[in-house]
């Protein structure tokens, strides 16, 4: 069997996850997390917090919830079903940080937890920041040229 033939055979016979089911679950779980966020947001707004602070509180709440579920070993069980439903919301970001912190505890709190806490989520912060700085430069030049942003 030639290499090309074999690669074609592998590609053809590779089983993919049940697409409909994963799509449905990611939509449901993602939707539920966002709806929970919205309920919390409206609740915080009722407490006369402004829009921004209410959103920040929602994020904090979801991060703390994720932290507890991750610590108890429940998060990855939910995530197995939910897929992108838990991984695209802020819960996925929080879980990738907290699971790394937990995992590398055996290498100590400085070289393990401290150094490896962003081993998965690091790129998100790096490229998020880089993209925001590029946007900032564009905004800055627009204001220099007398435009409004």
């Amino acid at each position: 069997m030639k290499k090309e033939e074999y690669l074609k055979y592998v590609e053809e016979t590779t089983k993919r996850a049940d697409v409909k089911k994963t799509f449905l679950f990611s939509f449901l779980f993602g939707g539920l997390i966002c709806a929970l966020g919205e309920a919390l947001r409206l609740f915080f707004l009722n407490f006369s917090l402004n829009e921004k602070d209410a959103s920040a509180c929602v994020s904090c709440f979801l991060i703390i919830l994720t932290a507890i579920l991750t610590g108890l070993g429940l998060f990855h069980k939910i995530a197995k079903i939910a897929g992108a439903g838990t991984f695209v919301p802020i819960t996925g970001f929080a879980n990738s940080v907290i699971s790394s912190a937990l995992e590398f505890k055996t290498e100590g709190f400085i070289l393990g937890v401290g150094a490896k806490i962003f081993v998965i989520a690091g790129p998100v912060i790096v490229y998020g920041t880089a993209a925001s700085i590029i946007c900032g430069l564009v905004f800055y030049f627009i204001t220099l040229l007398g435009g409004t942003i």
């Binding site: 993919r16 996850a17 697409v19 994963t22 799509f23 990611s26 939509f27 449901l28 779980f29 993602g30 939707g31 539920l32 997390i33 966002c34 709806a35 966020g37 919205e38 897929g83 992108a84 439903g85 991984f87 695209v88 919301p89």
Partner: peptide, 19 residues
């Protein structure tokens, strides 16, 4: 409901890319 639908759809896009 609005949050559910929009949030769910954004996650669905993620799942499509993932799959």
């Amino acid at each position: 409901i609005k949050a559910f639908v929009v949030g769910g759809l954004i996650c669905l896009i993620g799942q499509i890319i993932l799959n």
